[in-house]
Design a protein around this nucleic acid. Sequence first.
DNA 1: CGTTTTTGACCCGCGC
DNA 2: GCGCGGGTCAAAAACG
Length: 232
Amino acid sequence: MSSTSQAVVNHGGLFEEQEMSTTQMGFYPFPPNLSFPPLIGCHQSVKAFNNIIPPSLAASDAPSHLTETLLASSTLKQREDISSHLGGPQLLSLQRSTANLWAWGEVNECLSSRRNSGGDDHLGVCAMKMKKMKARRKVREPRFCFKTMSDVDVLDDGYKWRKYGQKVVKNTQHPRSYYRCTQDNCRVKKRVERLAEDPRMVITTYEGRHVHSPSHDLDDSQAPSHLNNFFW
DNA sequence: CGTTTTTGACCCGCGC
DNA sequence: GCGCGGGTCAAAAACG
């Protein structure tokens, strides 16, 4: 377990691993394998991230993707902090595109609730807000989006996807593709689109949680038991 | 022939 | 109430 996704779990305890109850709605803004403490604390779950982030991106040779993920999930001030912390002028900030509006809203709500309550109970407040939003809107599955520079639109994340729609969204020249996990009873969806400002960048948005392991691991149906902890 | 992709139609939430 | 736009459906086509 020297590199790869297994190492992702061993993040030195910087993140407090928290179980997510089925009643909580969640958005997971931070990859847990960053080498510095989180700047905000929405629902953080190591399991969540290992489930959502494609193993190819969680690999140790792709740290820039994860820092971009972090930046994409942060406020402007936080992005500045992160950039100065990492000293990375190459780091990019993600525009608040329509693809991320919901996610941004959740981050901001969690941020404000933490500021106002301050401390240990922010998670509870956040969960309550999520519940309210769930009641107000339709079904809100946990969402996570990130961007990466890639020639291919669909990244190999270990799961099997079936395309069920494509749409040209306003003010963009590249269509947005809609995929659904092919596994029975698994309602996870993902959207893939290219950034209008920089077509080299692919924005992938995952919605929902897988109820199974990646298809790669299903080949021999006798995966090590500890793997079950990765996927929720 | 089963599975996946394509694509126009339809649905529905939201702003005006 | 209406129109717009994003998301989904489903039939047909394409693929392996």
